[in-house]
Design a protein around this nucleic acid. Structure first.
Lengths: 189, 189
DNA sequence: TGCAGCATGTAACCTGTTACATGATTAG
DNA sequence: CTAATCATGTAACAGGTTACATGCTGCA
């Protein structure tokens, strides 16, 4: 059986939500629409195809509610394989690319960890995230020192915000690691 | 002539860079690869098709350097239409959707403004951004107060970071507006 | 002469967007 | 009964990723 990794943030978010509670496609849409996960697509043209893909890969299975009607209602839940794939995707080592181009993917991954990944796994993830972010921050800061003074106003201001954003991420990671270390081992798992 | 608006961040970034200085496709790749614009794609499979689209729409034109060879080198520059379209795309009103789903697009837009958009245009943009961000921040904060306490550790921590991020954006906008107001009118235009 | 880096591109594929379509259920 | 909302979907399209292919140029 080949290794499973979930490619897109949307699929990851769907799997993560279904891990917490089985839901229909419409239920997922409502979550994306009404909660803080608004950053992800609530469009049926994204969700239903994604669900079909996940089912095809054996990561989820649906039980049809209202059989024999023309408009069945289908509730999806993770399979064992789906849970394993989700956990594997969440705990994958944090790369430079993750930090530079998929920052929100990183926060999404962490947000889904409780209940699926133990405290050690979360700490390892945060350590990786901290290291990669600090490395990249150094690069950005060096660039800001070198090229910043020559940049026009708006470019410099935007770059400054970018640098500050990575600094804030580092602060968040450090704080979250501390909070997590203080937690009783079982809590949040 | 129909109104031009640039759809994707990559196209916007390309137009913005070409507005500063004509460049070849490879030149653009190098910028994406070696500067703070690493968040955008440096892959030829994205850049060259985008350049062809922009040329097809009459927004840029290329002058071939090494004619008669099998491997010509082409330097692209904005057309008048391209500059107009770029300015229109940069100064488009800031929407809620921009804030929630296209935050980096907003910073990209602002970063490209100097030299193309006057101080009043920049201030209008920042005012719009501030209003929309504050509105959404209120929504997020309310959600955090309501649902935060019940969330598992990692979900709560990630949501907290999200809220803090929008707060930081508001602070940045306020500061940048002040800095901009202090600037001599001509500077940074 | 050969290799590294400059420079341009294509093809297959995947995912998401927009817009449309349609049936089922429930509150007034 | 009817309108709103629940609920599921499709089709056309746009855009990006990955992997591959190829020629040119300067230098050791």
């Amino acid at each position: 059986m080949k290794r499973i990794t979930i490619d897109s943030n949307l699929s990851l978010a769907i799997l993560g939500l279904l891990a917490q509670e089985p839901m229909s496609g419409y239920g997922l849409r409502k979550v994306f629409l009404t909660t803080a996960m608004k950053a992800w697509s609530d469009s049926p043209g994204a969700i239903y195809p994604a669900l079909r893909r996940l089912r095809k890969d054996g990561l989820i299975e649906g039980t049809v509610q209202r059989e024999n009607t023309l408009r069945p209602r289908e509730v999806f839940a993770l399979t064992r394989r789906g849970r394993a794939g989700l956990v594997a995707s969440l705990t994958r080592p944090v790369t430079r690319e993750d930090v530079v181009r998929r920052t929100d993917g990183l926060f999404l991954r962490f947000s889904l960890m409780s209940g699926l990944v133990g405290r050690d796994g979360m700490l390892a993830f945060l350590r990786g995230m901290e290291g990669q972010t600090e490395d990249y921050l150094k690069v950005l800061e060096a660039e800001f020192r070198r090229r910043g003074p020559g940049l026009p106003f708006s470019g410099r201001a935007a770059l400054e915000r970018g640098v500050e954003d990575f600094r804030a991420t580092v602060r968040w990671v450090k704080k979250t690691r501390m909070d997590l270390a203080k937690l009783r081992t079982t809590e949040g798992e």
